[in-house]
Nucleic acid binder design. Sequence first.
DNA 1: ATGGTCGCGAGGCGA
Length: 267
Amino acid sequence: MKIATWNVNSLRARADRVEDWLQRSDVDVLAIQETKCKDENFPWELFEKNDYEVAHFGLSQWNGVAIASRVGMDDVDRTFAGQPTFGKGGKDPIQEARAIAATCGGVRVWSLYVPNGRSLTDEHMAYKLHWLDVLKEQAQGWLAEDPEAQIALMGDWNIAPMDEDVWDIDYFVSEGLTHVSAPERSAFSAFVDTGFTDVVRPYNPGPGVYTYWDYTQLRFPKKEGMRIDFALASPALAARVTGASIDRDERKGKGASDHAPVIVELA
DNA sequence: ATGGTCGCGAGGCGA
């Protein structure tokens, strides 16, 4: 079995590339982030004609998460318990479309689009950290309930956990940029402390291994990226991992997402 | 060889 995660940065704009990749990659489950659409605009037929079931959670042009599977799609959850809300510009706070789960082939798959903190002092940063803390508490509970549970927390975490996960840590620190701050890294390592493992890194050691390259500043051709997309596996799932890869080639060419797909192979 | 943002939606925001 093969499971993957990919921030596609608009599913409609990327429909052809996503379809080509699905056929080429031969994945059984794909966790998608940033569909950037509502259900009424979701390309259901793209998945149906390729024999994937798909579940989507999208409320607007922002965010949006989905899971496609050809090994079953049970117990779909849109949001996790206690998922923090956020309201922009005085609007009523809502649970944004940043998390969806489904049980696919015996694996509890989460497609996660962690909030972007924007800046170290922005209110979005507090939201991000709280969002992660509540998710971690939930994940801890799932493991406490069933230590053998096979859980994959996959998605765009908007955190670079190690210095080597950005192209120039000194630049990020001196500019006071997000993704590398101590609170963000603590939020990430809290999942590791709970028993979840980054199952991709061992097969793709750094430095210089990234999953995201900004569209601006020629970041991709200059190999200036960030590793911010992760698959964190519960102990029972981690024990099944036989390989992992980052499809950097998918970042090439016209019409690419700014993120590359991350693939995990399971025995 | 990947080449100086991109997507949504119709101006400016979000990333």
